[in-house]
Design a protein around this nucleic acid. Structure first.
Length: 274
DNA sequence: CATAGATCCTGTATGC
DNA sequence: TGCATACAGGATCTAT
């Protein structure tokens, strides 16, 4: 949705100025990002996982944006006041609306990197090459996912959060999907059979689809709060953030534990560890 | 190479 | 009231 909204606004426009208001908002970038952007025309807008990128006409490079958890790309008129956490501003030669990268926590950032061929014959930025497709992507390879997941020797939740295996699943979606599947996040990947993985994948897709349908992160919504909360999370959470509450399936009290430096919520009865 | 754990960052919530 | 601390999390970085 962010991608589509942006596509409509920036494709075909030529960058004429770049203001970097926060140095850390430009990542993995040598030199001045403005040098790489000014004078270049944006050809389109693409996406994979939480990365968005805009190929620059004829350069073999792209402007890449990672939104982190609080990042936003906004189109704003020239005279709109700076946002509190405005990090980078792109001006265009037509003096039309500016593209603004706004990010409270600066977990996200912008960069310009070369484009390389990917497995499907498309072009992706070098730093996006290792990011797997998300389960709703038409090119998502279900068989490969199932095989790679089961081949790993680690915990299921850790695998779900690994972007090189599958993208689009954050801590919240992971907890919700695992609850629905009746799997504990610390279950070993190797203990799942093929059907178990496909069942889990079905729940992941359902959670993502429902979240999207209820708003997700829309280009038009000015603000998604720092917990990533939107209407979806207020109504439909069964595990995440529900510690101390009864499980909506069996009534047992939802438990929370630390995992990978973040919290994991699960039902001790519905999601046995073995 | 694969896996595990630490780390980045700042607004908000909680405790004393 | 005010200060200190904990917490939130996507992805990378470092260590094993």
């Amino acid at each position: 949705m962010v991608r589509r909204g942006l596509d409509r606004w920036v494709t075909g426009r030529t960058v004429s100025g770049v203001d970097v208001l926060h140095a850390r908002a430009v990542r993995r970038h040598e030199g001045n990002i403005g040098v790489d952007l000014i004078g270049e025309e944006i050809r389109c807008v693409s996406r994979r996982g939480k990365y968005l990128w805009m190929p620059l006409n004829g350069t073999g490079t792209a402007l890449v944006a990672h939104l982190g958890m609080s990042g936003q790309l906004l189109m704003q008129p020239e005279d709109a006041p700076d946002e509190a956490h405005l990090r980078v501003r792109l001006r265009f030669a037509d003096d039309g609306p500016q593209l603004r990268f706004v990010d409270q926590r600066t977990f996200g950032g912008l960069m310009v990197t070369p484009l390389s061929d990917d497995d499907a014959g498309g072009h992706v930025p070098d730093i996006v090459g290792h990011i797997a497709r998300d389960p709703l992507d038409p090119d998502f390879d279900e068989q490969a996912f199932e095989a790679r997941l089961r081949a790993r020797d680690t915990e299921i939740k850790r695998a779900l959060l690994d972007q090189s295996l599958v993208s689009g699943i954050g801590n919240i979606y992971a907890d919700e999907s695992l609850w629905r599947a009746g799997l504990h996040g610390r279950r070993r990947t190797g203990s799942l059979d093929r059907a178990g993985v496909l069942d889990l994948l079905g729940h992941i897709r359902a959670v993502m689809t429902e979240a999207l349908a209820q708003g997700g992160t829309s280009f038009d919504s000015l603000y998604v709060n720092v917990n990533g909360e939107s209407g979806y999370f207020d109504r439909s959470l069964d595990a995440y953030g529900q510690e101390g509450e009864p499980c909506s399936r069996c009534g047992s009290i939802i438990v929370r534990e630390r995992f990978m430096n973040r919290s994991s919520a699960f039902c001790p009865r519905c999601q046995p560890i073995t």
